[in-house]
């Protein structure tokens, strides 16, 4: 029977963003990672192009985050050394790139100095040859000191630097222009603020083609629906030609999931909810998997089992070819 033609005619393309620089390009990475470039919604290859597959960035921090034991044990002793942790992510888990967060710089954690943070960047760059995402600690004031030094330490490596908000975008634009990095623009689950931040970046002379959007991330069951929908709306707007929403999107799944009850509390308290050892990584994987459907291009993930399972999911959903 003849079926109606239901192909959507999207008019625009999501920006193609490359992270990392090889020797020829002025950096020291063995390979680069490119995301974006889509002309349709996730996995709908019958009506458009998905030139690059979604990627996984291994979560690495200068200081072990306050994570539950099941996650710390799954990663192993390497969690105490950012270089070894990053190596494990690349060699054993097979991640596409590393997301390095300066957890220890937070005045409430260790108040690590900007110089310490810069050293961690250098060490990780030496330890692995994949592209790098660099985040501050989330405390604006501190990050204004931390990020410039980290950026400088990675000069020419074409990193992705996070994150530019309404409150600090000037600093981020300045360092990313000077040291040739790309920017993560952040807005708290709000499409209008997201646009606003991108307008500010543009007005400050930064090309939106070098931006990845971070709508912030919520763990499954904790406002996940809001983020899911913002990712989806932003992607639809981008495909319909809204240049301010045409950036690829990043989700910090690992950073969010391992703080919530379902990934932290074991069966002794949550009777009948299943062993935390299994439930925790499952929570991370399902959260990541469903975000993929909404338009996530880079997933930051922490648990090796969750990473392995999402790598498989990405392959399974891209398989099957075109009509």
């Amino acid at each position: 029977m003849e079926l109606p033609d239901v192909k959507e005619k999207w008019t625009a393309q999501i920006n193609q963003v490359t992270i990392g620089a090889t020797k020829d390009q002025g950096g020291t990475r063995a390979r680069t990672v490119t995301v974006g470039g889509q002309t349709t919604m996730p996995f709908l290859t019958f009506e458009g192009e998905l030139p690059f597959k979604p990627v996984i960035a291994g979560y690495v921090a200068d200081t072990p985050p306050g994570w539950p034991e099941v996650l710390i044990n799954a990663i192993g002793k390497e969690i105490n050394s950012p270089e070894e942790w990053a190596q494990k992510c690349v060699e054993e888990y097979g991640v596409d790139l590393i997301s390095l967060k300066m957890v220890g710089a937070d005045p409430a954690v260790k108040d690590a100095s900007p110089a310490d943070c810069a050293r961690v960047v250098e060490d990780v760059l030496k330890a692995v040859d994949v592209p790098l995402i660099i985040w501050g600690c989330g405390d604006d004031e501190k990050d204004n000191h931390v990020l410039p030094e980290c950026s400088q330490a990675a000069k020419g490596e074409n990193c992705l630097i996070g994150s530019a908000k309404e409150s600090n975008y000037m600093t981020i634009v300045a360092i990313c222009k000077a040291d040739k990095h790309k920017i993560i623009s952040e807005a708290p689950v709000d499409i209008n603020i997201g646009k606003q931040v991108n307008i500010l970046l543009q007005d400050a002379g930064f090309d939106l083609k070098d931006v990845v959007m971070f709508q912030t991330t919520a763990a499954l069951g904790y406002g996940f629906d809001y983020v899911y929908t913002i990712l989806e709306r932003a992607r639809i707007a981008g495909l319909k030609g809204d240049k301010l929403m045409a950036s690829p999107q990043i989700c910090d799944v690992g950073g969010e999931v391992w703080r919530i009850k379902e990934a932290v509390v074991d069966e002794d308290v949550l009777t009948g909810w299943g062993k935390l050892e299994k439930r925790g990584p499952m929570w991370e994987a399902v959260c990541a998997g469903v975000y993929l459907q909404a338009g996530a291009d880079i997933l930051i993930m922490a648990h090796p089992e969750a990473i392995k399972n999402i790598q498989m999911t990405i392959d399974q959903f891209l398989k099957g070819g075109k009509e």
């Binding site: 629906d225 379902e262 909810w273 959260c287 469903v290």
Partner: peptide
């Protein structure tokens, strides 16, 4: 139907099927 298997599916459904026009 291990609890650790079905619970995340149930919560994914719970989230995606929430009415976005009604404040949560």
């Amino acid at each position: 139907m291990e609890p650790w298997e079905v619970l995340p599916i149930m919560v994914a459904i719970q989230d995606v099927y929430t009415d976005p026009q009604v404040p949560n």
